[in-house]
Write a protein that binds this DNA or RNA. Structure first.
Length: 434
DNA sequence: AGTTCCCGCCAATGT
DNA sequence: ACATTGGCGGGAACT
């Protein structure tokens, strides 16, 4: 069953009343092409240091997993749906538009939901909340975390004595008034495999699944950042912490794999950033969503506002599709994508216009791993300052970045995103420091 | 050689 | 029974 291209067998291709996401849909002038993805984001990639100039798919690529990365997909996903007029997201629609298989969408959606950006409404249907939902979700997570932590736990020591993968959690969905989705939660309590002999009935058997869900893992991962004071965690540590001590090696490996996935999307959302552990050169992640302990009362949004670079020109990553290409398959049709690349700008244009074009927003929301830039930076002045400084980096980056792929679409979000953050901060401060 | 992590099989779940 | 969801880990791309 080679499911090469995403089956186009979709009833509502044109979507009679599909959401107006079609912003970037510019009928590709290729009626002959089988499915032809609308756009693609061609991340600089350039592997091996060839990302010299902007969006220009270096000659024919081979495969490049970077173009298929979850992070990129997430970026595109957000760019595609984060609009004022979007309220519903259909899985099939997303998959089709982004040119990926369904499975991938589930990954994205699951973590986005755990962060409050989405809520499941029904089968195949999600409601788009947007970044404005993040603060509340994080707050919730933090509270829950500290709550469950205060119980019986020694400082700086492992938590739950769970032997299995089970861990904390007391989930309770995203706040939000009104009775929305089935606020399923359940505090499982898996234990020995050989079930409980005389357990009345609170067994919750088969809920193992949920415990290992990406969404939960994401929340727990985030909790780590929100609670611990160390501001850089390696996936190894995270896995170790999230898993009990009961290491399983193979278990760890799997967990780490998942964490990579999560980290990638969180990175694309700019909630975390990849760095190196203070002293040990080990790669690790740092939380960017400022929310830890009491910090200055300033609202310093998670993303450094300052800097209004944005060269006014160049508008890249506008594509919303991940090319479809099998792992190791040099397809000659590859050259097609080159063509697709240009023409970008539609969304951007639109956005700019509705944003009051011209750099009104200060800062490029998503300089996701600007490949070269970041690397160089690290290399340059070996990052050592363990604390703050992230801001600095941003500025730095902002002024020296190579805009390959800057998703301007997100600029717009920044507005209410910051706003949300702000209120969140005040809220927090008020409540924990009367 | 080690790290990162995409891909998609196929088992739970849902309808 | 068919459709959705989504663990899970092999193994390839990328350091």
């Amino acid at each position: 069953m080679a499911a090469a291209a995403p089956a186009v067998a979709s009833p509502s291709s044109a979507g009679a009343e599909d959401p107006p996401l079609a912003v970037a849909q510019a009928q590709p002038p290729a009626p002959s092409a089988p499915y032809l993805p609308p756009r693609l984001v061609v991340d600089g990639a350039g592997g091996g240091g060839g990302f010299g100039v902007v969006g220009q798919p270096c000659r024919q690529h081979a495969y490049s997993r970077k173009q298929k990365s979850l992070g990129l997909l997430c970026t595109n996903f957000v760019a595609l749906y984060d609009r004022a007029d979007v309220e519903s997201v259909g899985l099939d629609d997303a998959a089709r538009r982004l040119g990926v298989e369904r499975r991938r969408i589930y990954d994205i959606v699951n973590v986005l939901e755990s962060i409050g950006i989405l809520v499941r409404r029904a089968k195949n249907r999600y409601t788009w909340i947007g970044f404005s939902g993040v603060p509340a979700a994080l707050k919730e997570l933090k509270e829950r975390a500290s709550r469950e932590m205060s119980g019986s736990m020694s400082p700086s020591l492992d938590e739950t004595s769970a032997f299995n993968v089970s861990d904390d959690d007391d989930d309770d969905k995203l706040d939000d008034a009104d009775g929305d989705t089935e606020s399923e939660k359940l505090s499982q309590s898996i234990d020995n495999p050989s079930d409980k002999p005389d357990a009345p009935r609170c067994k919750l058997r088969s809920d193992h699944r949920k415990e290992k869900s990406l969404g939960l893992l994401t929340q727990n991962f985030v909790k780590l950042f929100l609670t611990m004071e160390v501001e850089t965690i390696s996936l190894d540590e995270a896995a170790r912490l999230l898993l009990g001590e009961g290491h399983a090696e193979s278990n760890m490996r799997t967990k780490v794999r998942r964490l990579y996935d999560i980290a990638n999307v969180l990175s694309s959302l700019n909630l975390i950033e990849k760095t190196q552990q203070a002293d040990s050169r080990k790669p690790a992640f740092r939380w960017l969503g400022k929310a830890k302990r009491n910090e200055e009362t300033t609202i310093t949004a998670a993303l450094p506002p300052t800097k209004k670079t944005l060269p006014s020109k160049r508008a890249f990553g506008t594509d919303l599709t991940n090319i479809d290409m099998k792992r190791s398959k040099l397809d000659s049709t590859t050259e097609n994508k080159a063509k697709l690349t240009r023409d970008g700008g539609s969304i951007l244009k639109t956005l700019q216009r509705q944003l009051g074009q011209g750099s009104r927003s200060d800062f490029v929301y998503g300089p996701f791993h600007p490949a070269g830039a970041r690397k160089q930076e690290l290399d340059d002045h070996t990052v050592q300052e363990r604390e703050r400084k992230s801001i600095r980096e941003w500025e730095n980056l902002a002024s020296s970045f190579c805009p390959q792929y800057q998703n301007q679409a997100l600029n717009d979000l920044f507005g209410h995103y910051a706003e949300a953050w702000k209120s969140w901060y005040l809220d927090l401060t008020r409540e924990q420091a009367p």
